[in-house]
Simulated assay, not measured.
Amino acid sequence: MTHFSPADPSPHALGFAMPPEWAPHAATWLGWPADDELWFGHLAGVRSEFAELIKTIARFEPVQLIVRDEESERDARLRLEDANVTYHRQALDDVWLRDSGPIFVRRGQQVGLINWRFNAWGGKFEFENDNQVPEYVAGALGMAHWDRPEVLEGGGLEVNGAGVGLTTRSCFLTDTRNPDLTEAGYAALLQQTLGLEKLLWLGGGLENDHTDGHIDTITRFVSETTLVTSVESDPDDANFAPMQRNLAALREMTDASGQPFTVVELPLPAARLEGAEGRLPPTYANFYIGNGFVVVPQYHDANDKKALEVLRPLFPGRQVIGLPSRQLIEGGGSFHCVTQQQPAGEVWRGKEVELS
């Protein structure tokens, strides 16, 4: 297994780039929830929703599931009997693999990965085990990879597969992640590592989102030219004004060729949800796109059906499936936050590159 340091040729220099989520997958990686305290007493319900999510994904593509101990593996195997799941025993602090897991890059049919630092959204929780997940995945796959010193979370970045990335200032520019990186610095970094030609910025995300406003909770690419963005209908709600500012900003943005995007409004859940630590950030934008399907979180909310109606026409050829996420949101995230796609292609071992 080949390791690349920042002094070695970058992914972009070797022709690699991050593919969009809707590109074909080899598998989806997840972790199995295990700590009832982290879930504020909701672990049983969370595991039930996880099982339904994993069984749904496994109908369409293989699932690679990390379990942190014997009890977790036993529980998962019992709930996921006969599903297309491969189990990996590896220490975990939590299950947010969108952020703690690797980001995969592809060159033609060759797939490598990038091991970014993970610090639990600025040191908010324990993270030492989760920070080891990309290295574990690389070892399990025998995949060449780049070890980067920067903190970067997959949920903080959207890509359209045509050179454009989208993020939020409230997340990337916090002083608890990469305090020395400016907007221009991030643009250069993501050009070198993920092949992005253009990095676009929104202001911030949902109220009480402990990720500091990840883009995947509010605004998502659904194609190279189309975005969906969350909107709040109640002018008195704290999310109303920031979502309106995001909507206005998106309508002024253009792609790598200077063409405007099609921007589709996606409602937020109608009901305000409260958790153990205040308001929860439920959102339909935290859907996950896989091979032939899209899974959309549902919250027993009046807007559940409407969200599915907005999203279905945007994914021709894919089944858009609503699944329960009312317990999962108690931890602050949903389906996109707990998944990480491995693009289809052959494992790149990096043997042809001369290292410094």
Rank of each mutant, 00 (worst) to 15 (best):
Y288N: 04
F240D: 03
W22G: 13
A248C: 04
V231E: 04
M18V: 12
A23R: 13
T182I: 03
D175N: 15
R59G: 08
K306I: 06
K55V: 01
H336P: 00
H88D: 02
A91F: 02
V296I: 11
W96E: 06
E183V: 09
D75L: 11
V111Y: 00
G142H: 04
R89A: 03
L92T: 06
G290A: 06
E277R: 12
V95T: 15
W116C: 08
P297R: 10
D130W: 01
V137A: 04
S233V: 11
E352M: 02
F50P: 04
V133D: 05
G332I: 06
I57Q: 05
S48Q: 15
A188C: 01
V222T: 12
G165Q: 09
R177A: 13
A302Q: 15
C171N: 09
R326I: 06
P267C: 00
E354I: 13
G45H: 12
G333H: 09
R68Y: 00
T167L: 01
E52I: 13
I114W: 13
P260N: 05
F172P: 04
I54H: 03
F4P: 00
Y288V: 10
L190H: 07
R318N: 08
V133C: 05
W96N: 05
I57S: 02
E274R: 10
M1Y: 02
L323M: 08
S257I: 00
E354A: 14
P281V: 09
E158T: 05
I114S: 08
I215F: 05
Q342T: 11
F4V: 09
P269N: 09
F221Q: 08
L65M: 12
L268T: 12
F315D: 11
T176S: 14
P297Y: 02
A285K: 04
V85D: 02
G204D: 15
W39A: 00
K198G: 10
D209N: 11
R74C: 07
V105W: 09
T211M: 12
L30E: 07
A17H: 14
A144M: 03
L141G: 00
N178Q: 06
P242N: 05
L78F: 13
E158R: 00
G278P: 14
V296C: 06
